[in-house]
């Protein structure tokens, strides 16, 4: 079809493309208007504390996208970006409207398992203090555990990649014990460690340590030997060879280990909080589930999504800075 547009038919189709362009620019706004109308005009059949907050959110979105569509008429960059994103944005707004119709406006989906977004927003607003505290607790556990695990993973991986002796002594344990999911250790760890906090730190660190170690080890072991030879003729000592040659050369693989470790640490964190720790987002979810308050579960899941994807974005941003020399990296 694209080829057909490029040759002969181009002249006829051209005004139509411009028209479809205008349609695509206004589609998100149209979808938002539909969502807003169905939200305000159709009466609700389920109880919610307040419907105003969601109305405000929709109006705010409407203002933003109307403004974006207007600037798109004058500025080429905002025109291009809105044209690009309009499809997915429209889809999301339609999805929101449909979900509200299926839940709050008709009660088609059963409560308490499938609450409306209006109810979830309620929970986010009314329970914000508790959720905020939970986020802080989770972040503290995650950061301490992840950093410890990543640090020891890097050290073990470098030692294994650089010294044959370390490889010999550590490899069997790494291969045998490493694949066990960190969460499977919970019964043992809760007995060995003095508190559920330290036990969780250990579990998150353990789950992070394994992938970071394996990827760092294979990264260091796979470095082109000529790099070391050249560096040695330039006067590099062993310290320089390890830290300034092997480490940066292996960093593309090390980053994959850090990324995998981060994924594992999210899992370990939430499971640990659900089973032992008395604070945090995992704890909040179990607690809300106990009261059958599923809208709170979804509120916590939403926060988790925002939190964890932000953390991954930060990791990728760091990588983009460090690996500026590599070609063809995917953007996050």
């Amino acid at each position: 079809m694209e080829i057909a547009e490029q040759i002969g038919i181009q002249a006829k189709v051209k005004p139509k493309i411009a028209l479809s362009g205008v349609v695509r620019l206004t589609l998100p706004v149209v979808a938002l208007v539909v969502a807003l109308l169905s939200h305000t005009l159709i009466p609700s059949v389920q109880p919610v504390v307040s419907e105003r907050a969601y109305t405000i959110v929709l109006v705010a979105l409407l203002v933003v996208f109307s403004a974006w569509a207007l600037t798109a008429l004058y500025r080429k960059s905002s025109y291009r970006s809105l044209l690009y994103f309009s499809g997915i944005l429209t889809f999301i707004f339609v999805l929101l409207a449909v979900w509200e119709l299926l839940t709050l406006k008709s009660g088609t989906l059963p409560l308490p398992y499938f609450p409306s977004q209006v109810k979830i927003l309620d929970a986010l607003i009314n329970d914000r203090h508790k959720l905020f505290i939970c986020v802080l607790y989770s972040l503290r556990l995650l950061l301490i555990g992840y950093l410890i695990g990543a640090f020891f993973g890097l050290v073990t991986g470098i030692l294994m990649g650089w010294y044959k002796h370390f490889q010999y002594w550590i490899n069997p344990f790494l291969r045998f014990i490493g694949p066990i999911p960190a969460t499977a250790w919970i019964p043992v760890v809760l007995i060995v460690f003095p508190s559920s906090f330290t036990a969780s730190i250990f579990l998150i660190a353990l789950g992070t340590w394994f992938p970071v170690t394996v990827m760092t080890w294979s990264g260091i072991a796979g470095v082109n030997k000529s790099f070391f030879e050249v560096a040695r003729t330039l006067g590099a000592n062993e310290r320089y060879l390890v830290l300034r040659v092997a480490f940066p050369a292996a960093f593309p693989l090390i980053f994959i280990g850090l990324f995998m470790g981060l994924g594992t640490s999210f899992v370990t964190l939430i499971v640990a909080e659900m089973l032992g720790v008395k604070a945090g987002l995992g704890f909040y979810i179990t607690w809300a589930q106990g009261w059958a308050e599923y809208y709170k579960v979804y509120a916590a899941l939403f926060i988790m999504a925002v939190l964890f994807s932000t953390i991954i974005t930060v990791l990728f941003k760091i990588r983009d800075r460090v690996l500026i020399w590599q070609k063809g990296l995917i953007k996050w």
Partner: peptide
């Protein structure tokens, strides 16, 4: 030792 410089067929510049 740096008193003996070495250049390979592959320039082996450090890509980072």
């Amino acid at each position: 030792h740096p008193s003996r410089g070495l250049v390979f067929q592959d320039p082996t510049l450090f890509p980072w």
